[in-house]
Design a protein around this nucleic acid. Structure first.
Lengths: 222, 222
DNA sequence: TGTATATCACTTGTATACAAGTTGTTCTGT
DNA sequence: ACAGAACAACTTGTATACAAGTGATATACA
């Protein structure tokens, strides 16, 4: 997925800043400036500016002419938009392109999910979650939808990092729902897989929303 | 939809180049360079380069480092990707947000469509087509999907301009299908509207593909 | 004639100088 | 103490100079 020209300073700057935003090291609504980013990277303005331009277009930065740059914030409406896209794209992928999935990989996922449906904790749970959904969507042979989904993926990570640690009940339920989806895939029952995915995303959205609201107590998230 | 800061030279350059690409004045696969674009605009490199960067990210240009810039071409696979997105987004919009539609506007559209189901010609047909679909999608309250659709819209126009004039049979059939969709909306029968849209897009894709293949006789479209 | 090499015209990548807008502060006058 | 203007420190926008890669062409040589 990633283009193989990390050599240019522009690309380096882009990856660097994007990573910092994704990991909330540049927090939502944080005020930045070209100067800050330049000094962190040691590059001159040109490549940094071009990276900023790309990130602005992706919606991760907002440039206010002659005023400054801010990291895009999150609102409740953002969350529902993100999950709306997921509910649209992920079940669609399963229903229409599920047969392209690497069943060995899905079987491995299934094994892990079943082994941890009653687990109290699982280090690297989020990475597992990401990898599972990414694996499913990766069979989508549509550049436009893949671009869209990768934008969404960045936001998902940001959202998660913001909202901090998860609640245990979510771990078990997510494992169970993932297992359900994976098993439906193994049966080549794409209809069932798709429905299970819709339900999983529904729960996931509610959980995200609740966690975020609890953590931030209505502050600046509205 | 369009941001209201056309003042900056960067934005002007972006709009200018994008328009030329959309209207195929810069044809698919045409070789460009920063120098060409600079001299056409009279601006210096910086704003033009930033515009180029944005257009590259949108997929309308491809920059080959130290070699040049080419206008993105069209392949058959592009067409199917474009219509896949449309089949995903447009029916979804009707089914879920149809009730937000301005029914007066839809009624006007319906009137026009019915009046021309047997017409031999209709000047401004394409604009009408665009406006109808745009009107429907405009009620979608999701920034990500709107961005995606606007990318698609650019491609739709490019595709049409490339393939030149349409065949008459398409005019009448399209009018009829549009009328069907509009009428379903007027009845608030979103399920029917959605199904009619799927069918319309199916036909539209086949027609686009046929027209394009006929016009270009398999040249560089593969 | 054929082949390897040097060169040159062209491309984009990067650094930097300068222009111009915005905001907060400071100073002045009442 | 307060109001208002001048100013200073910041911001991004634009222009331009220079670096460096690429490919075609010409040239030297066998």
């Amino acid at each position: 997925m990633s283009t193989a020209k990390p050599s240019s300073m522009q690309s380096q700057a882009y990856e660097f800043i994007k990573r910092k935003i994704t990991m909330c090291e540049y927090a939502p609504n944080e005020l930045l400036s070209e100067a800050v980013l330049q000094s962190e990277l040691g590059f001159s303005r040109t490549p940094v500016r071009e990276a900023i331009g790309r990130l602005e277009q992706e919606g991760l930065l907002k440039v206010f002419p002659k005023r400054g740059i801010v990291v895009s914030g999150f609102t409740i409406s953002d969350i529902s938009m993100i999950f709306e896209v997921r509910r649209l794209v992920e079940p669609y992928t399963l229903r229409n392109y599920g047969n392209r999935l690497d069943m060995d990989k899905i079987a491995e996922f299934s094994k892990i999910f079943h082994e941890h449906v009653n687990a109290e904790e699982y280090t690297g749970f989020y990475e597992l979650d990401d990898q599972f959904h990414s694996t499913l969507v990766s069979v989508l042979p549509n550049e436009y939808l893949c671009d869209l989904y990768s934008r969404i993926q960045t936001q998902i990570i940001r959202l998660r990092v913001m909202s901090g640690q998860m609640i245990e009940s979510r771990l078990q339920r997510t494992m169970a729902e993932h297992a359900d989806i994976a098993d439906a895939c193994l049966e080549h029952n794409w209809e069932r897989a798709s429905r299970a995915m819709v339900q999983h995303l529904q729960f996931s959205e509610e959980s995200s929303l609740a966690t975020l609201l609890k953590g931030y107590q209505n502050a600046s998230i509205i």
